[in-house]
Design a protein around this nucleic acid. Structure first.
Lengths: 154, 154
DNA sequence: CATCGAGATTTTCGTACGTCATCAGGTACA
DNA sequence: TGTACCTGATGACGTACGAAAATCTCGATG
């Protein structure tokens, strides 16, 4: 019964330290290094873990402004618009959504001028029928990845 | 010249592989292992790199629904509301924003029922004056971290 | 005033040592 | 049969430390 639980624990341990060694993970989870190695490979192959990244504080490197941009798009132009947004490197998330707007995108900019320039340029697309931009005043939490549930048994 | 450039290159290399060894990074950037180690420590101390995490595909572990929740909040209750949201483990991002709404939060849920339950419970808070939920139909890109600019000189 | 250079500081580097990841072969248990 | 474990062997890895190189500081000099 540990089999699937171990995977969840392994993911959670890595969420705590994504550069932890297999040995330290093995010790933490009280299994052998081999087992950690095997399960980790499986998780990567299954696509549960898609890769590893540092958490970069963009504020600390000069990207002081975050904005949430909502767009109403002409129906059949949706793929074009989302493609364009994704290719903007500063767009961190692009969602197609239900509701008043069709697309919600989140982007990071060096300052409000840079933000305005980029957004104005985006809105020249005639397929965009309406837009609404919210500037982030305070990121209470951002891109947090929560831990997976571990069913505990004795 | 290279000093700050090396830091940017180092961050970019880690964005490519967050578990890359110091040796492979050193080879890629054509500096010694020690230099990589020193600069990496500095970046961590300065807070540019806040830690390392695996990229978890929540879809693959049963969290099939992502929602963007927008709230209008009674002015002085804003901190309480954002605190509550942040403590909901499934809320990955919580922003205080300008515009029609005061708070934009992004959350992940196992299914629409679970989402509805949690959102309904949230909205019992009398400080929340209005709300608007958009369900994500398609995550074109999510929590992408873009590379830092490297000024090239000869 | 521009230049120089000795000394101090910072940055980078190579080496060395203990640890680590990986693989293979074999055991135990359900 | 499948999962987890141990052992041993090998090459890769992280870190500490002193040497070397590059950079900066600043007063003296022509």
């Amino acid at each position: 019964m540990t089999y699937e639980n171990l995977d969840a624990k392994l993911v959670n341990a890595l969420l705590g330290d994504g550069r932890a060694s297999l040995r330290s993970l093995a010790e933490e989870l009280d299994v052998s290094v081999t087992t950690v190695s095997n399960h980790l490979s499986d998780l990567e192959e299954q696509g549960v873990i898609e890769g590893y990244t540092p958490r970069v504080d963009y504020d600390a490197v000069g990207y002081d402004v975050t904005a949430v941009i909502q767009l109403q798009v002409e129906g059949n132009a949706l793929p074009d618009v989302t493609d364009t947004l994704r290719d903007h490197r500063q767009m961190t998330s692009v969602y197609e959504v239900t509701g008043d707007y069709d697309v919600i995108a989140i982007g990071k900019f060096e300052d409000t001028d840079g933000m305005n320039d980029q957004i104005k340029q985006l809105l020249t697309d005639p397929d965009i029928k309406a837009s609404n931009t919210s500037v982030v005043l305070n990121a209470v939490s951002e891109n947090e990845q929560f831990e997976l549930e571990v069913e505990d048994e004795e």
